[in-house]
């Protein structure tokens, strides 16, 4: 189990053993978070740029804290307050950041493939922190880490992802990670947002929410991505909540040990009942804690990456 990648751009291109390497490494970094001194010198002297061209709060904060705990120097760059607003191209922005000798660039962008584009010409390592509706690899890694931690395994589990799949990078990355590790993935939501074409990724598609959650070990709820929707795709908040929201009545018809996950931010009363979000079966806050450990692991692994990608690019 060694890691030879220079970038983390997606889950699709990772092998099951590479995913496990990240999760095993994350376990060690989670333990660091429980110590009196929560900082280790692994990235001392390295400069990490957080290039968040699309707004983000929780992912950016999680990455930033992960970088601080690894002793890296940090530059935060957001679209609102940057030269991208003044007409600079993404490529020029990235080149400028590299001219400051940045070692890693953590990037969030509304365009799918933007991090892959940067990775083609930058010397620095690129970490995809979410690109459009394409992938959000660290979210899938932290979700998988949480499943493994809570259930002791991933293979053979029934995982239901419920909600807006079409516009969700979280769903895509999760489907790749879970199926590579042998879980059985079921997708459910309004038919306009869960096209059958997802069956080609190796999962099951159903529009019957009761059936989708009945045998589930994990129910991963996704937020309706209003910012990416066209109005015609979506029935309305109230209708969605009654047809697909996880209510107490629906939860009562699931397996008693089924766990509730959500990548956040949650919309109480829409995809999830407020009480359920705070109940013992919800692992939503564990996901946040684990996100920090997983991001530390990813940054740690990429720092030493001397692999074929570096030679090829």
């Amino acid at each position: 189990m060694t890691w030879h990648r220079k970038h983390l751009l997606d889950i699709e291109s990772l092998s099951a053993s590479e995913i496990m390497t990240v999760l095993d490494t994350a376990r060690a970094f989670k333990a660091v978070g429980t110590r009196a001194i929560k900082k280790v010198p692994a990235l001392r002297g390295k400069t990490v740029v957080n290039l968040f061209v699309e707004p983000s709060t929780r992912t950016r904060i999680s990455f930033e804290l992960a970088e601080q705990r690894l002793s890296a120097d940090i530059i935060n760059f957001s679209a609102e307050a940057s030269s991208l607003k003044k007409g600079e191209t993404l490529k020029d922005t990235a080149r400028n950041l590299e001219a400051l000798n940045a070692d890693m660039i953590v990037m969030r962008h509304s365009a799918s493939g933007a991090p892959h584009f940067l990775a083609r010409f930058l010397r620095a390592s690129v970490v995809n922190a979410g690109d459009g509706a394409h992938e959000h690899p660290t979210q899938a890694l932290l979700d998988t880490f949480t499943v493994l931690e809570k259930k002791g395994k991933v293979a053979g589990l029934n995982v239901t992802i419920l909600g807006d799949i079409l516009y969700s990078r979280v769903a895509r990355s999760n489907i790749w990670a879970l199926t590579k590790l042998g879980a059985k993935v079921t997708l459910c939501g309004p038919s306009t947002l869960v096209p059958r074409v997802f069956e080609e990724m190796g999962c099951r598609v159903t529009y019957d929410v009761e059936e989708a959650i009945r045998e589930a070990d994990i129910i991963n709820l996704l937020r309706i991505q209003h910012e990416r929707q066209r109005k015609t795709m979506f029935p309305g908040i109230g209708e969605y909540a009654s047809l697909f929201g996880l209510s107490k009545a629906r939860l009562a018809r699931t397996k008693p040990d089924a766990l509730i996950m959500h990548p956040g931010p949650i919309n109480r009363g829409v995809e999830i009942d407020s009480e359920i979000a705070d109940c013992g079966r919800s692992v939503i806050l564990d996901q946040v804690t684990n996100g920090l450990a997983v991001r530390m692991a990813v940054l740690f692994l990429l720092n030493g990456g001397k692999g074929p990608q570096e030679i090829a690019i």
Partner: peptide, 21 residues
């Protein structure tokens, strides 16, 4: 004690596997 996070040669090699501390 795992010392992987404290090594001074991290940039020179692939990241070392982590074992429990």
């Amino acid at each position: 004690l795992d010392v992987g996070m404290h090594r001074d040669d991290l940039a020179a090699h692939a990241a070392p596997p982590m074992h429990p501390t």
